[in-house]
Amino acid sequence: MSKREIFMNSAFTENSVWKQILGICSALAITNLVRNSLVMGLGVIFTLALSSLTVSLIRSYIPKRIRMMVQTLIIASYVIIVDLFLKAFMPEISKALGPYVGLIITNCIIMGRLEAFAGKNSPIDSMIDGIGTGVGYSLVLIIISFVRELFGFGTLFGFQILGDWWTKWSIMVMAPSAFFMLAILIWIIKGPLSAKKG
């Protein structure tokens, strides 16, 4: 596969969220503001790309039996970097994301990609796969948060978009709407869009 194909494949065709329903914990929790989703997405891209690269580089040295533990530790180290960076440069967003930055460690997408791709492929390919998966994940976050912020607060990135005439849908800010939004997104992608292609 060419580099471009790897990227497109992991970002869209095999998108972790809507194809495999992985890693949705954080996809739902922080998507009431576009800004938070963007930062979260970047954090995941960074962690995924670098841990894929690292695991791929040392893949022949990791003993099979303890590879889960090694992978978790590698992921955790990069998450700590992300966490410290956010605390230092964007304390406000770091506070808003709260424990969800730390929870990138248990995001099944990352573990899944390390197991399925980085453990078997060359470092550069693995890194591209990591970035692609991360981009696909961020895309989902941003689509969901776009709708939720627009209807819930009438704003985008904190700027007022809808005027005073707009009655805010407070349900959009609350937890249930996240479940509904993701379900609708999966429905649209799996149903009508796939039907057309097939």
Binding site: S177, F180, L182, A183, I186, K190, G191
Partner: peptide, 20 residues
């Protein structure tokens, strides 16, 4: 259940209603 909503999609909607 409509195709596309089967499996995860439907579970998410049920969970959403439970959350409500």
């Amino acid at each position: 259940v409509p195709t596309g909503l089967q499996g995860a999609g439907l579970s998410l909607i049920i969970t959403g209603l439970m959350a409500l």
